[in-house]
Write a protein that binds this DNA or RNA. Structure first.
Lengths: 269, 269
DNA sequence: GAAAATTTGTCCGTATGTATT
DNA sequence: AAATACATACGGACAAATTTT
């Protein structure tokens, strides 16, 4: 086996004859070398994608390393590096003599609708939900926040930094702003109740609705990777939402970053 | 094994106490090495992110290479590699003696609401929108599609593969399924009108609504990178939507992958 | 139960790419 | 431009654990 490896690098000395753009339309191995992304990481990405597609669902395990190496046209060691990375991510678990088992992990579905409270729809998916307050601050509102909450400047807001976990794994981190005049005890109430809904209720707001949501996806920065236990290159789904009471007065402006590989947003319209 | 980086980094020979601290809220620079992504690509990613955040909006250009090298704690050669990559992507344009200019590119906002057709909300953001049919097929519905479209098995569906571009840059690629019995000429109509809405209209469906949408973010695969002109490591926002006529009968099941760095989804509830 | 086949884990070495000095 | 250090990728050989024969 072990096909001839293509000569890497751009030979700038000798002009290579007109190789007519080999059309590699078959999906099996357009591996791109030396483009700033290590081969083992590219292989890891492709294995991860295949797992997500359900390619290996019938066996529940990866093909043997030697087979994968053959499929991708790389050395077995390179496949091993890729599998090591996926192991680090908690996606697979290699067992000597047995094979590499695929750990099943479902995506949590987060409903986004007018009446949805943060964790309401999660109750039937997992019981073990925890929200932890990691920081809070009473501060002057900057223009962006004042505009969203429809506050006059200057105004004070309360900021809460929250990390939420389901089944022991962190799934999201939020930064939420509340008008300080109306909800002066937000931090204490949240710390005690571990819920924005209940914190609102303790301060006299029985119900509230979601006004609008913006959604963006990007790479997680170092802080988010740390809070959400993500590996480098991981993705966050960032939602920016404005919630209001039933009269339409904004009560919360929140930016939530979800670990993209653990969640799915769902919108009923 | 987190970065055991020894960090020769920033040699501050003379302490610059009065430096105005350019709003660099991103604390320090925990550059993580030996993790499968070349340093220059990590730097490129971070510069791209900063551009997206608007960090350099005041000047419209990147700080000098030497300054960037100092900020990130890497050699200037590495920063140059990163900038070369961003130049290739068309994000910046270095000019000798002048600096590195940032090419303006806004995020397109895609509204997701009950009555929104695909490109309706785009009209006021850019004039130059194009939808191109790259493949079509009449095929037997698989279980997932039949369930979404509420078809009995066996049934036939028409599949359209579409790439949409705005202002000359591809922003999304969709795979859409329609019941073949009801819309037999979908492919021709779409090819002619370049619009799902108009193709529906030509076949007797004047109006339709969005029933539900699922949203997921993940790394782009090789095919998506090719169709959307994305670089390795890029992210796609994938929406899976079911549209129905006004009686609630499903008429379209579509999976759309957006280039995540070019779009923002917006939900009004 | 024992032997063979399969599969992951570890070691050797070599060549090349990456980043700094 | 060159020297140095380290990460990446390849190739081979064998050990260790598990399943199959």
């Amino acid at each position: 086996m072990a096909g001839r490896r293509v000569k890497p690098g751009v030979q700038k000395g000798a002009t290579v004859g007109a190789m007519p753009e080999m059309r590699d339309e078959d999906g099996e191995r357009p591996v791109e070398r030396q483009l700033g992304v290590a081969l083992w990481r590219q292989i890891a990405d492709r294995i991860r994608a295949k797992i997500a597609e359900g390619t290996y669902d019938s066996t529940g395990r990866l093909p043997p390393e030697a087979v994968l190496a053959g499929e991708f046209g790389v050395n077995r060691h390179t496949v091993r590096s890729a599998i090591a990375s996926l192991t680090e991510e908690g996606i697979v678990r290699p067992m000597q003599g047995l094979g590499t088992l695929i750990k099943r992990q479902e995506r949590l579905q987060f409903p986004i609708s007018r009446r949805t409270r943060f964790s309401a729809g999660l109750a039937d998916q997992t019981r073990d939900i925890a929200a932890r307050l990691i920081a809070s601050e009473r501060m002057a509102a900057i223009a962006e926040i004042a505009r969203a909450l429809k506050l006059e400047l200057p105004s004070e807001v309360i900021r809460l930094d929250i990390v939420s976990a389901a089944a022991g794994r962190p799934v999201s981190t939020s930064t939420a702003f509340f008008p300080a005049a109306r909800f002066p005890d937000m931090a204490d109430c949240f710390r005690r109740t571990e819920s924005v809904t209940r914190a609102f209720a303790e301060q006299g707001l029985a119900d509230y609705v979601r006004l609008s949501t913006d959604i963006v996806a990007r790479h997680a920065d170092a802080g988010e990777r740390s809070l959400l236990s993500l590996s480098p290159g991981s993705i966050v789904l960032e939602t920016t939402a404005v919630n209001a009471d039933l009269e339409g007065v904004p009560v919360q402006y929140a930016r939530t970053r979800f670990a993209a590989d653990r969640v799915q947003l769902h919108i009923e319209t």
